[in-house]
């Protein structure tokens, strides 16, 4: 995991591309829809969430691809430690460089859309809970499509359906708090998804990697 962080720092541009992609996608919406504050405020949570999911999917390709090409992945499979633990470390490092910047940038974008302070807070919490789950689930897809032709498109087809619950509860939490219903229910469901993903996704990813390297 430490190694992945070091590598990411030496390849800062990759991190920044993901972040800028996120910002640009979000900024396109006001241009497409028009500058009415009321509408923008209404769609803001959904827009930020969809953009976050697209951006993290863009980064997904890099999760195992480099290690697969230079043979490090083989050595990971041959390590005596359980593979799922190594996978978990890798995914968390991946999240720290691709997911965390998005989370930190999101409130700023929310402000552009005229969101209230309370809405921003809930947005932040929902992203903190939701984006790691997205990285974990995405890792399964990335592992399955390693080295497959057209893998980039295929991975979206595989993982987007699995992202939908996260999206529904993530955007739903913000919406619920804006309309005054309280976001606790949505947020606790998001937390449950994250907990489930933490338990099962590394294991499934490890199994997928073994299959892909066979």
């Amino acid at each position: 995991m430490k190694r992945d962080l070091i590598l990411a720092v030496r390849r800062m541009s990759d991190v920044l591309t993901t972040l800028f992609f996120f910002i640009i996608v979000v900024s396109l919406f006001p241009l497409g829809i028009g500058p009415e504050v009321e509408i923008l405020r209404m769609i803001a949570p959904g827009v930020v969430w969809v953009a976050a999911i697209l951006a993290s999917m863009l980064a997904l390709g890099r999760l195992f691809e480099g290690d697969y090409r230079d043979g490090t992945l083989e050595q990971m499979l041959l390590a005596p430690q359980p593979l799922s633990v190594l996978v978990l470390g890798k995914v968390l490092a991946h999240w720290a460089v691709s997911g965390l910047p998005l989370v930190l940038m999101a409130p700023l974008l929310g402000l552009q859309f005229g969101m209230t302070a309370e809405g921003l807070g809930v947005l932040l919490v929902s992203l903190v809970l939701g984006t790691p789950a997205i990285s974990l689930i995405g890792a399964v897809g990335a592992a399955l499509t390693l080295g497959v032709r057209g893998g980039g498109v295929l991975v979206s087809l595989l993982v987007l359906p699995l992202y939908i619950p996260v999206l529904i509860f993530g955007a739903g939490a913000v919406e619920a708090s804006v309309t005054g219903l309280g976001a606790e229910a949505h947020l606790s469901l998001l937390g449950a998804i994250l907990a489930l993903a933490l338990c099962f996704a590394p294991w499934a990813t490890a199994a997928a990697l073994r299959i892909s390297l066979d």
């Binding site: 399955l144 499509t145 057209g150 893998g151 295929l154 087809l157 499934a204 997928a208 299959i211 066979d214």
Partner: peptide, 21 residues
């Protein structure tokens, strides 16, 4: 997704195992 993953992988053994997962 299941069907396209199976179709995209050339090696039949890997294809069935990956799509099975």
């Amino acid at each position: 997704g299941f069907m396209s993953l199976e179709a995209a992988i050339d090696d039949p053994r890997r294809a069935t195992r990956a799509s099975g997962l």
